[in-house]
Design a protein around this nucleic acid. Structure first.
Lengths: 190, 190
DNA sequence: GTCTATATGGAGATAGAC
DNA sequence: GTCTATCTCCATATAGAC
């Protein structure tokens, strides 16, 4: 701790996480990160080896989902949609940065692994019945679809509309993959 | 037509479409495009103004979906999933290129517009019943979710598994948004 | 209309003095 | 451990001769 400024490895990682999440991989330079961390560009490389390693080190999928993917199965669909609707902006930013940088092979691998650990495995653990693995992957697909539509495509009608209406409509579609066709339903759309 | 080589505006657009789809926006340079079209880099700019305009001009969402989004509503879910499972690789590449370049504001707008025209509007046109607009947008979300999981995340189990199993399992979840909770179902997963 | 040459600017990474 | 200076490379875009 003999340095003069806040330029520890942690401080650089913090600055990188903020900037990568804010502007994405391509639009963030090593120099930007150094400036933000009040450090020197050469130190950034010295600590992390390369820009890509720094990106992979800081852009990890958050763990908040674990608390959500749990029993009881009967309300899993609703809890998943609710979690997306009021999710931490930082989580959203990491998701977007990873996806947009996924033309780099290593980032694509990290995205695949993160998807597997964050969604598929926890879901697989609690699902029962036939085709549980397949259904876990397809539940993950529906969840990812809502995130992509809201955050990536930025469907304004969905963003500005009534969140409860989205939950009420989308949750049963997910729930069908979780527990099978609904035996009792509140309101039929047609 | 006094030129010596195949460097018409159309030839340049063709080369750009191929390369952008293959390698993405950032990894494709004006020089690459010019070389591929057997033309001069300066001509590329002269014809299209800038790299970003060229990208937006060539990466347009294909129109194949229109044939798929149609009556009867009862089988729409299955037809949508089937269309994704054996879609043209070029369509897939355009989708990926647009998404990965969507940190640029103009590309994000193009993506939003393309999503609206390609998915939401055709779906909205054929859906009936309450909340038709909301349900059209959520059907688009499920479709986008499957595309993202297969092509962006590259879930290998889904890619290598039995396509018919995916269709059999995912289609009813979409169908639920189209026609409401299933009244008759073939097999219950649990 | 076409192309050579270049302006202009930025990037990632490194060498080596302190 | 830190930072100055720089290497090397590549990009988009343009000016101006043919």
């Amino acid at each position: 701790m003999g340095g003069q400024r806040g330029r520890s490895k942690a401080a650089i990682g913090q600055a990188a996480a903020t900037l990568f999440a804010d502007r994405g991989y391509a639009a963030t330079s090593i120099r930007d990160i150094a400036r933000e961390a009040d450090a020197d560009p050469a130190i950034v490389i010295r600590h992390y080896g390369s820009k890509e390693k720094l990106f992979l080190d800081t852009m990890r999928m958050p763990s908040g989902w674990v608390s959500c993917i749990d029993l009881p199965l009967e309300t899993l669909g609703e809890r998943l949609v609710r979690f997306i609707m009021d999710t931490d902006p930082q989580l959203r930013a990491v998701y977007l940065a990873l996806i947009r940088a996924s033309d780099a092979g290593t980032v694509a691998s990290a995205l695949k692994l993160g998807h597997e650990h964050t969604f598929v495995e926890p879901l697989r653990r609690i699902l029962t019945g036939p085709d549980a693995d397949l259904r876990a992957r397809l539940v993950a697909a529906t969840v990812g679809g809502l995130m992509a539509t809201l955050w990536l495509v930025q469907d304004e009608s969905l963003l500005d509309g009534d969140p409860e209406a989205i939950i009420r409509t989308y949750a049963p579609a997910i729930q069908q993959l979780v527990t099978g066709p609904a035996t009792l339903s509140t309101v039929s759309p047609r």
